[in-house]
Design a protein around this nucleic acid. Structure first.
Lengths: 153, 153
DNA sequence: CGAAGCTGCCGTAGAACATACGGAATGGAC
DNA sequence: GTCCATTCCGTATGTTCTACGGCAGCTTCG
């Protein structure tokens, strides 16, 4: 009941790559009966190893050709500045990721947009209009070397 | 045949959140017959809007408690340095993302590891041992405010 | 106008699939 | 040896997928 065995890890690896593989196909690939596979996948989901399933969309097909990384520094005057910023970021659909970091700045934001003009508007209307944002540094992505790599299991 | 209509966008939005929803359930949610839904999803996949499906795993359940962002600067002396670096990064399972950026440094790397000791080893054995890596700056993530947000469709 | 062609939708039917259930095999504790 | 827990498997039932053909609306073009 405790940990992950070798089979569990193989399952997780396969499901990361193809989350819609049929239970039967996955079972035969691993070398297990379909029902056993069903049991294991359900268990992995119940225990939280599998948080969910999702479709991977092609951003360029959707017209989102610009990926930007933004370093954000906040004014640390009022205590709820961080919460306000985090809430605003979670609301913004352009923002795919946002991490609070330790080091030279406070947050790193990853946003996907149509083009530079759209980014310019996003920067002014969303980011810079937030109270407490002291400084931002933008890094447009030239080449996506690796993206959404699977977790090592 | 050309673009995405309103129904297509709804489908993409739903499939991003739950990629394993049954075709029948998705059809009834959107208000379409199951067979029409099947046609549309197949079309979206064939045209490349849907690049694939995958399981979302919980990194902490897998013991990957440390998320680090690393800015990397390269020596621009030899022309194939960039290719070598990109290839190495694609090979490294700890690296989830790597983007070449325009600005103060060359690459931003996102890596997930067990702990600081593991990161220390990764930094020395993988990153710094690559030829051409001139400088790195590491930013451990304190709080993941937003992660793997869905693309706006 | 009207026929042809295209597109998107739907219903049917057979196959493939998922899953609840109970039974068998394995391995450890005592 | 006996008990218990775990993991696996086969069966059976209900659900789901999908290939196929038909129907309605729209456009095109003679």
């Amino acid at each position: 009941m405790a940990e992950l065995d070798k089979i569990d890890r193989m399952i997780l690896k396969e499901l990361q790559v193809d989350g819609r593989i049929s239970n039967a196909e996955l079972a035969s690939r691993i070398g297990l009966a379909p029902t056993s596979m069903s049991d294991r996948v359900r268990r992995l989901t119940r225990l939280g190893y599998i948080a969910g399933f999702g479709a991977r969309l092609d951003p360029h097909k959707l017209g989102l050709d610009l990926l930007v990384l933004i370093e954000v520094s906040l004014d640390k005057t009022t205590p709820d500045i961080f919460d306000k910023f985090a809430a605003a970021v979670r609301r913004a659909p352009e923002v795919l990721e946002c991490h609070m970091v330790s080091g030279g700045f406070d947050y790193l934001v990853k946003a996907r947009l149509k083009d530079m003009a759209t980014y310019r508007a996003f920067l002014g209307d969303v980011l810079l209009s937030l109270p407490g944002v002291r400084e931002t540094r933008s890094y447009p992505v030239i080449e996506e070397v690796k993206n959404n790599g699977p977790l090592p299991v």
